[in-house]
Amino acid sequence: MKNFTSKHSKKNNQATITRRNFLNTGMAAATFSLATGVTLMAYASNNDKVSGKTSRWGLLIDVNKCKSDCNDCVKACSNENGWELSEENSKTDAQWIRKIDLKEMASGREISLPLMCQHCESPPCVDVCPTGASFKRSDGIVLVDKHICIGCRYCMMACPFKARSFIHEKVPESQKKSGSPRGKGVVESCTMCVHLVDEGGTPACAIACTQTGNEAILFGDLYDPNSEISIRLATYQSSALRDDLQLNPSIRYQNF
């Protein structure tokens, strides 16, 4: 198992340039003048209220407990965040989380698991985003800043998990939730229910999974050695998807 704390003192990679931030906030930041109106600014990470020094949110998914005929985590996510999968636009509709049925070719073992944004420690989507709209918070949650996303879709090309969706048409009022703004022309993905987590809550998929009694999804703080998720990770074998890429995701799979 990878050590989650190993790289965590790495400098916060929120590097954005915005003239407004520079002019208005003057935060403890490194600023470089590039040209008139263009400034490079890096947030100093010790400004963060949710500083990565204290937490990194993650999910542990026990594949053995996940039932192939259960879709409750997907439904819960859809309800919480507003996205809807329709029959006729199944290729263009957003899907923040999906159930995947797997059959191991060598052994014939059949399993089922939910797949969503893996909230990588070194996210390729953040690396490729030209404007810095795709970013990782210091608590490890990878988000799209829809205020500055220009809809180029390069992050979708870069994501190894196909976790992101582009919004292909106008979002009806019924599909916008107060905790989860959604709109045409930008990219979106699982936010680990950041609006709930910031208020001390748990992501909707994890709650739903507990309610089914399957208890396959466990949410917790990977940096807190006493959290249930850390204890289980330290006790049992678990794995990350596409481990060959060394992205060190916050989502881990047990018995896979």
Partner: peptide, 18 residues
């Protein structure tokens, strides 16, 4: 682009790792 109206952002906001 999905948000053609935000072209100015592409010109003024850079992530130099991209």
């Amino acid at each position: 682009l999905g948000r053609l109206d935000r072209l100015i952002i592409a010109m003024t906001t850079y992530n130099f790792k991209s």
